[in-house]
Design a protein around this nucleic acid. Structure first.
Lengths: 222, 222
DNA sequence: ACCTTGGCAATGCAGTCGTATTGGGAAGGT
DNA sequence: ACCTTCCCAATACGACTGCATTGCCAAGGT
């Protein structure tokens, strides 16, 4: 064997560059040569590690998903053992929202891939089971245990992410909407708390945890 | 004046073809020549009505938005005067979900444009005020009147649309999640209804209105 | 010392892209 | 009848695309 090069490390390096290009200019701007220059390597090297562009795209797609999972995992681990369901869900969902700048970039890439897979049903089918698992898990954490509510919460997260990326919602608005939803799901019986005049929700967790998330995000970038 | 040709009609014809191409193969496959052949015209004619590709894209984007608004408008008009808020919101949101095949195609295009505008902040900024208006309107229809809940409902709709397009949720599941959310927003005080043992939600509106929407959708296609 | 093998750069190729340019034909105004 | 003005098709151009091919270099195995 001649040289020793970590194959997967190179592929991740290239996928990183791809995500940078996609985050700035969209997936349409992703070409072998663009990615190569963004990665600081030659176009031939990209071809060496990905025999076809499609192979590169598929790898990058899975890389995006792995990043999201890692993001959730670290968010959950920072909660300690056996966190209350509401805090757990909030942390997981907030970790998936594009709140910081780094998460925003990843979100743009994820959104691009969302449209990408929408016209490639075969690729989209692979992501399906993990969504179903997630819905099931969310349902297990809800007081009602209903998967309809879990599916709704997950959809709300996705929509918040989309709107934050589009600039329609600010990060704080997204967190407020999330907390309002968790209020509905966890305190539906006692409506008094939400309707008590003069009560302001933002005195609660929303503000401070927004900043905390921002910190975590930038820390990750460094 | 030589010939008489309805300028805007031609542009809509071309935009229609563009949407067909984008729905089947994504926005990346949208080129002047592809759109031209899909529209059954020459590439030169496309250039005649859109001096640049960007102009064509911008026009198509606004055409997509107009279709969505029209979809909502007809759905609302079919409700008669002064409908109950819950029915009104349900009809509007259901009209925006990609439940039928035609709406699905339009949804794919809308999703593609979502990713498209995500890397073109200037274009995205134009869509912002209408979203804010929509949130405000939704809030006015909610019992709580809270815009946080309205923003959440709108985000839930967007997320449901994305997941239906991706095949993660079926149309019926999306409607169930929507109705569950409306339950939360409109009946939060009386949790008894949702927790009464043996009660099955699907006996309600969800099933039959799914079919009704499908009919309306195919009817529009014809 | 030779030779195989993997890492990598460079080049070539056929095709497509967006756009500019050209030109002909058809329809009115004068 | 001429001429202007618009509709539209065709073509040319340079840039770029994904991919295949080629060749050099370095690092082990034998």
């Amino acid at each position: 064997m001649p040289k020793k090069v970590d194959h997967d490390e190179r592929r991740r390096l290239i996928a990183d560059a791809l995500m940078r290009v996609a985050a700035e200019q969209g997936l349409e701007a992703v070409s072998l040569r663009h990615v190569a220059t963004a990665a600081g390597v030659s176009a031939g090297m990209v071809q060496h590690y990905f025999r076809t562009k499609d192979e590169m795209m598929t790898f990058a797609l899975s890389a995006v998903r792995e990043r999201s999972e890692a993001r959730v995992r670290t968010a959950v681990e920072s909660l300690g053992a056996d966190p209350p369901p509401r805090q757990l869900l909030r942390a997981m969902i907030a970790a998936l929202l594009p709140l910081g700048e780094a998460a925003r970039e990843e979100g743009r890439v994820a959104l691009a891939f969302l449209a990408y897979t929408a016209v490639r049903p075969a690729t989209a089918a692979e992501l399906r089971p993990s969504t179903a698992e997630f819905v099931h898990f969310i349902a297990s954490q809800l007081p009602s245990g209903e998967s309809r509510e879990a599916a709704g919460l997950l959809a709300l997260m996705e929509g918040l992410g989309v709107y934050v990326l589009g600039g329609q919602y600010g990060p704080d608005q997204a967190l407020e909407a999330l907390d309002a939803q968790l209020d509905l799901l966890f305190d539906a019986g006692s409506a008094a708390r939400r309707t008590r005049p003069g009560w302001e929700y933002r005195d609660g967790l929303a503000g401070e945890s927004s900043e905390a998330l921002e910190e975590a995000d930038t820390a990750e970038t460094v």
